[in-house]
């Protein structure tokens, strides 16, 4: 644990609430939370839920990671620029062809 991890842990200890939602509940609330973040739509989740989700995300690295990924995609979709499969795949190297392996 380095200094930053320690300070983060300390922050997590002191921001602990008596009642927090678990990962299953988070999973249930998250999509509407993300839609709200992306569109600020009128279908606002109740204030309680917003806070419960935010508290959980600050405490759970796995849920935070999935939240970030979901937000990215929902944002792209809302902006009409979710990349086509081939465009994302183009970021990966092509496999070596059998011929070049045979030469090697």
């Amino acid at each position: 644990m380095d200094r930053n991890q320690f300070l983060h842990w300390l922050e997590q200890i002191y921001s602990t609430r008596d009642q927090e939602i678990d990962c299953e509940k988070l999973r249930e609330f998250l999509p509407a939370y993300v839609d709200f973040e992306v569109t600020k739509s009128s279908q606002t989740p109740t204030g309680d839920r917003l806070e419960l989700v935010a508290v959980h995300l600050a405490q759970c690295p796995d849920c935070a990671e999935e939240h970030a990924a979901l937000f990215t995609v929902a944002r792209m979709l809302a902006d009409g620029n979710l990349p086509y499969a081939e465009k994302s795949l183009a970021l990966f190297e092509e496999e070596p062809t059998p011929e070049s392996e045979a030469v090697a």
């Binding site: 999973r27 998250l30 999509p31 509407a32 993300v34 839609d35 279908q43 989740p45 999935e66 990924a69 979901l70 995609v73 929902a74 979709l77």
Partner: peptide, 14 residues
């Protein structure tokens, strides 16, 4: 409560 695509996306991201 959410957009269907957001709900569905959560499953594949997970």
């Amino acid at each position: 409560e959410a957009k269907f695509t957001t709900w569905a996306c959560q499953i594949v991201i997970n």
